[in-house]
């Protein structure tokens, strides 16, 4: 038996194409889920009661159900709502939806734990609660948020492999196709592990750079 080097050589460029899709989907989901999560997190700290309840339910749902099920719900649910987006966008939305829930919790935790004197000082110059959240507390929380946020984004990249179940030709799905054609599961899964590891390492490195760049006070 031994290792099938020929198949590995053949698979590397094919998997690179899948990796590009993984990167595309992950970046889009990071942006949509990140912005959505910040908004949801701020709403959960606001004085808007209905909004807080909504976020509470949203986060509970995201945390309380498997991502795989969420992916299927979005994939099969969108057509029910009359939206035919195709598997790429359905997958992107499912991941964004999931990511936003986790980011919202990070935002709630960090923004909510800024020292109380900051809120009092802002109130004493007449700022409303919404202005305090956006102009005073959120900017101070960005840097302390980064480690927890990086965790969520790393998870997001790895979770994108689940999109293979709705036939998004991302990294894992591309690997599965090669395995089906040549039956070299060990070699391909090992390659997939390396690909994911490299992507996640790059992301972790980038987050450290950003963290170092952001001023600490």
């Amino acid at each position: 038996m031994g290792i099938d080097w020929e198949s590995i050589e053949m698979a590397i460029p094919l998997l690179a194409v899948g990796a590009m899709t993984t990167l595309k989907i992950s970046s889009l989901a990071m942006v949509i889920g990140g912005i959505g999560g910040i908004v949801l997190g701020l709403v959960s700290l606001s004085h808007w009661r209905a909004g807080r309840w909504f976020v509470r339910g949203y986060v509970d749902f995201v945390r309380g159900t498997p991502l795989l099920i969420q992916i299927f719900l979005v994939f099969f649910g969108l057509p029910v709502l009359g939206l035919r987006l195709g598997e790429f966008w359905a997958g992107t939305l499912a991941l964004s939806f999931n990511c936003a829930g986790y980011v919202a919790e990070v935002v709630r935790g960090t923004v909510g734990s800024v020292e109380k004197g900051q809120t009092e000082a802002a109130r004493s110059i007449g700022m409303t609660h919404g202005q305090i959240l956006v102009y005073i507390l959120l900017p101070q929380s960005l840097r302390p948020m980064i480690p927890a946020l990086t965790n969520d984004l790393v998870t997001l990249v790895k979770n994108s492999s689940l999109l293979s179940v709705i036939s998004v030709y991302e990294l894992t799905r591309s690997g599965q196709a090669i395995i089906a054609a040549r039956f070299v599961p060990f070699e391909i899964f090992a390659l997939l592990a390396i690909y994911y590891y490299v992507i996640v390492s790059a992301l972790t490195y980038a987050s450290r750079l950003v963290e170092r760049r952001l001023p600490s006070w």
């Binding site: 900051q118 000082a121 110059i125 007449g126 101070q140 006070w217």
Partner: peptide, 29 residues
Amino acid sequence: ARQQRQFGFVFQRFNLFPHLTALDNVAVG
């Protein structure tokens, strides 16, 4: 909030906004 800003408040521990310059701390209000 409108009423609150009629009262200036100076805190024992200053409570300046650490992410803003001195100028922006004063200008933000």
